[in-house]
Design a protein around this nucleic acid. Structure first.
Lengths: 362, 362
DNA sequence: TTAAATAATGTTAGCGCTATCATTTGGTAA
DNA sequence: TTACCAAATGATAGCGCTAACATTATTTAA
């Protein structure tokens, strides 16, 4: 039978099967929850012994420990992390600042972070900046109020105030996604977006394309640097850089990719290759070209970025750049936890690179 | 200039531009951070006044408030939420339990949750169950240790122990994604997966398809109920239900969709329509059919579930069921926050429905 | 003008836990 | 036995903040 309490009011006593033990206080601030002291009274030992049994079991005799564990289970005791944090000065929490959770790129990164934290018994607090440095400043401030033991932020570009806050917090920090494109405050894990863009340009040039376009959505700092890397190689080859360039600050989506390539082609039908700054955009471009009966890559080549799930399966399969998203999250968290556990890191900066995956679309 | 502290050791003093004020204590537990008391001393008022200026600004005279805000900014003071939580008995934190963050479905739900929490100044703590009830039990226990003010869990199926823990926690709970398919512990937001499945079956039947297959990945409880709803309508129409059925517990992906339809077609080339339990799977199926030069929907119809970003753009555009993912997260959080703020909710259960989007693929 | 009401600020205690140091228990060697 | 040491457990204080009540300043009403 399950009866869920109808009333959550502070101090309201809710019936529980607690072996007769009731929460000690039900004053106005009491939450009516079982505390360490309740367990201690039940077992007949001091509170600190319960604390030890839970946090450092080896310090408590096995027999007593067993009794404590039994009482904890019976009373449904759940330690109060706020109290623990306050007393111990550590929250076992990591803060994560990403642009938006609803982008596959960052949900993959976050998964990498999550899997590492769960293994080391940390919690994850995340916040979205929605690609705004002002928002970032706000959420950093909010997250720091939770006194995380460490923090991960996205990108190397932030406001001076954000930097100040992070330094004043005096906790390890990993800036993720990008390396080699700005000031690093502490640690850094990612890859070079400039090089990634350049690498795709070189590939397309090597394939013989000469009227090469660029479609960019979102156009955050990293997108811009991918574009710069890309255009620098076109410039090196004495090709047009501005002519077939189309960017927007609208977030990337499949639909947007369709619209953008439509616009580009209506202005410049001679374009023979397009680098989309995100696979989503590239999917949309491919679909739109299909509708226009343009053969890919014969009439127009399409390339993407990130190597998302569908890229290997789409027709034609998408030439793209694989980025180590999960690994970035995972390794960044590893750096953080190593630092927190006073284990040395080989390096404060990890360039995890990228990989150009040549498939059929270009 | 930015110099990041090289040492995070407790109590180590790090130089800061703190207008001469140093953290009060640097004992072994002190984190070397500025506290309310430091601000109070700087401004020359009591700590509680600082607290009020920050939490309930109207209660402090504007002139004084301005001085306090200035001091807070100069000292880079960040309130300690653990201390606040402990003193106030509220953490301003909501816990979220979802199967996996790396599934677009749940990252959309989480975004809905996040956007609502940010507006009301709550924090989000999330955990993944990876579709395991045992994991769910563990993460619920871990999350409750943070004493969240409210909690959102996914689905109606959980272990007895999970239910016990949630009840003992005595905080508002919203079970999301599904309604009408099991015991609700407190509040409930979602839609009927059985009905959604049934609705797609009716549509396909109405279109005249008779050799109708089903491809199911992951096959968690909700997938199963979608399948049951779907098959029940096929049975009503006296059609085969088992013959063209293919399921796996492997997580859904585009690639998997391709493999599954390939397998299904090699066994049963007569299949004329397939309902994929996820759009990802449907994309993969469409791509594979294209490679086999099967005309969609003339030779084989494909339908999906969730109406993800690419579904409207793919060729042919995908007939699917649009599910209110963002809204589920958003409304569930709204219910939770209303409850926490003692505002009445019209209902403890919200059926947000679904919508069949008929496009070209079926 | 003075009392009463209200606004603004202060004092005190305590939220639930753990660091630190103190004490007790049990085991070992002399 | 006694002295000694390690292991196990306990007492105390305090982490940084806010609820509750107390006091003081300011405004308003009579």
């Amino acid at each position: 039978m399950v009866l869920f309490p109808q009333n959550y009011k502070k101090g309201i006593e809710v019936s529980r099967d607690n072996a007769g033990v009731k929460p000690a206080k039900s004053g106005s601030r009491a939450k009516g929850r079982i505390t360490l002291n309740d367990v201690a009274k039940t077992v007949g030992v001091s509170a600190i012994t319960i604390s030890r049994a839970l946090n450092d079991p080896d310090k408590v005799k096995p027999v007593l420990r067993a009794r404590i564990e039994k009482a904890v289970a019976e009373l449904n005791y759940v330690p109060n992390r706020a109290a623990r944090s306050l007393a111990a000065g550590s929250t076992q929490t990591l803060a994560v600042v990403i642009p938006t959770i609803s982008n596959t790129v960052f949900s993959n990164v976050l998964k990498g972070i999550y899997d590492q934290t769960i293994e080391h018994n940390y919690e994850v607090l995340f916040a979205n900046t929605y690609y705004s440095l002002q928002n970032e400043e706000k959420v950093i401030s909010k997250l720091l109020a939770q006194y995380p033991d460490g923090i991960i932020t996205t990108g190397l570009d932030m406001t001076e105030r954000s930097k100040e806050l992070l330094q004043a917090a005096n906790i390890p920090l990993v800036q993720i996604m990008e390396v080699g494109a700005g000031e690093v405050l502490d640690m850094n894990v990612g890859f070079s977006h400039f090089d990634a863009g350049a690498s795709m340009a070189e590939y397309l040039l090597a394939q013989g394309y000469r009227n090469i376009g660029f479609l960019g959505a979102q156009m955050d700092f990293r997108s811009q640097r991918r574009m710069q890397g890309f255009l620098s190689k076109l410039a090196d080859a004495n090709l047009e850089t501005d002519k077939y360039l189309m960017t927007t600050t609208i977030p990337s989506s499949v639909k947007l990719g369709g619209h953008m390539i439509a616009d580009l082609l209506s202005e410049h039908p001679q374009v023979d290759a397009v680098f989309c700054n995100n696979d989503d955009l590239a999917y949309g471009a491919i679909f739109e070209c299909q509708r226009r009966k343009l053969r890919i890559p014969e009439q127009i080549a399409i390339a993407g970025f990130n190597d998302l799930d569908a890229s290997a399966s789409i027709n034609p399969s998408l030439t793209t750049i694989r980025t180590p998203l999960y690994e970035i999250g995972n390794r960044a968290t590893e750096l953080l936890i190593n630092t927190l556990k006073r284990r040395p890191n080989l390096s404060k900066t990890l360039d995890l690179g990228f990989e150009l995956i040549a498939r059929d679309s270009a």
